[in-house]
Design a binder for these strands. Sequence first.
DNA 1: TTGTAGGCGTTATCAT
DNA 2: ATGATAACGCCTACAA
Lengths: 347, 347
Amino acid sequence: MATIYHVARRSGVSTATVSRVMKGGTGFSAATRERVLAAAGELAWVPSGSARGLASRRTGIVGLIFPDLDNTDEPGQDSPLYFDQIIRGAERAATAMGDAVLIAGSRCATGRDLVFSVASKVDGLVVLAGSLSKRDLDQIGRSVPVVLLADRAAHRGMDGVAADNRGGARAITSHLIVGHGYRELAFVGGVQRAPDSMERFAGFRDALKEAGLSIPEAPAALGGFTESGGELAMHEILRAPRPPEAVVFANDQMAIGALSTLRRARIPVPAQMAIAGFDDIAAARHVRPALTTVRQPMRDLGEQAVRLLFERVAEPDGARRAVLLSTEVVLRRSCGCGARVRAGATS
Amino acid sequence: MATIYHVARRSGVSTATVSRVMKGGTGFSAATRERVLAAAGELAWVPSGSARGLASRRTGIVGLIFPDLDNTDEPGQDSPLYFDQIIRGAERAATAMGDAVLIAGSRCATGRDLVFSVASKVDGLVVLAGSLSKRDLDQIGRSVPVVLLADRAAHRGMDGVAADNRGGARAITSHLIVGHGYRELAFVGGVQRAPDSMERFAGFRDALKEAGLSIPEAPAALGGFTESGGELAMHEILRAPRPPEAVVFANDQMAIGALSTLRRARIPVPAQMAIAGFDDIAAARHVRPALTTVRQPMRDLGEQAVRLLFERVAEPDGARRAVLLSTEVVLRRSCGCGARVRAGATS
DNA sequence: TTGTAGGCGTTATCAT
DNA sequence: ATGATAACGCCTACAA
């Protein structure tokens, strides 16, 4: 395998000059440049990333840590699709800076192992909420810059970016109340203490309070963020003596599951019961009736997180930042809206 | 930042011993091990990935090159979702071997350079069909092992894995003919010379031929693999003097677009026209009527590609291999099937 | 504009 | 079981 020495010899210059040409700045004649590039091409030489990283102390890689990229083998069971969008956003932002993205599920590797295999290979890390324990997070934060994604548990000394879950939930709930006149509303959460679920529930309560309606202590049901969980949750709700006029779900997948239950129960949506979700996954448009929901700027989340990371890498001691991205209500038929219109953004 | 020297000094051993302990094999006493680990922990030391890579000639990273991770800002326009599944499969296989996955889109402005910079950071590359020109591919193949994904244009001396597109298309078309008795079938392709589209069309023709029906020279229409393209393609088909009884689409997104057109035209599916797609994306289950389609084992594709890559890295001169993964027909309502049953696999 | 040379943090090969 | 030390391939002052 060719090295910089071979290229230098072949093009009749020093390794320093080869290095300069490869870096792309200035400090060499056009003729030299051509000779070097030609030699590099002939030898099929690519500068070693490892050697470069070692000498320059930059790997040109940003890492992305997920809670668990695939815990299910059920093909139909789409595990959180928003991961994918986040990856895309991150990839875009990184590519724009000439960096690449390293992805790793935290699944089997915990703490030290992960630090090992990933932290040492990157210039910085974007960590999704729920990927790491606080302990591991702190430890990893000691060896590389870290940006927290969708994790409002603002950790000491770490940058973070998140979507305005609360504002979005508040906005869509207000729409149901003000726009359609519903007075009996219920909320279906995901998992017991999941931050996302809790924030959205808080927004739901904000809207009820604002409208002077009585506000529940807890979600009417929990659906585990899955489609089947949503079906069950809806069954639970239908068993109540007096079912609500409208139900807000903590995510789209549960809402879609609920639509199945309602169809089987021959309860017309939205005529007899209005439904709203959260996320705006692709299926939300295809389901009948099309699902009214709140769009999260997932791609932007990934993009902003990487940008923030670059800033931190460039200026390690700068003030920490917390970026909040606004969400957007997407009105479709399931809430009672006739057409598919978009309402304003929150925050 | 701590280095191996600091750790060695602090634990009273040589750097060689620290290195051995970190590698995890044997060749040191338990007591030594403890001391080293303790020192490493206290100093928050993580072995530098670059230095490791330089010395050992292994980065512990496999690269994944895509045609273009996101060329659209249209949130509804899901660019090929199967990328995501492939990423997941690759991540899983790599993690199982203790490696990480580096992803990079290729078509953006800085794409070409990026690809080469990625090549130098990884032990091997999985390249998706359509990411690189043959020239670039050959060149890159000279500096790292490459596995081609979903690219049947069997390149000289490269391993490859792909799905059985032709067999899948043949199987679903046969189902329409044999299972439902349709005799007038049409095929809608994606892009003019796209390999996927062509292979699926070939499978479609295989089935017609087998049934003794007349086989068309070319697809009845082209829909560019997009939903809106599918809508247009269906309009085109409806303009024909004698529309077909069943239409097979080169992918699900186009088929879903076609369903919209048919709904607006008040043509009942499958009663008056049966529809079949390809891929089995998530939306295929949610659309009404639910879409009959062919499932591609996308996750497996990613997984197998990475496995193959590891084999090649371990044994650079082994015989090249071409892996073909079987597809599976998924019967839903759009073809005329009453229930949602699964038929057998191909190949 | 170009060359010289020291160092980046590990691993691996010999010794012991 | 452990230590000394030469690579590993590149970058970057510093010189010329």
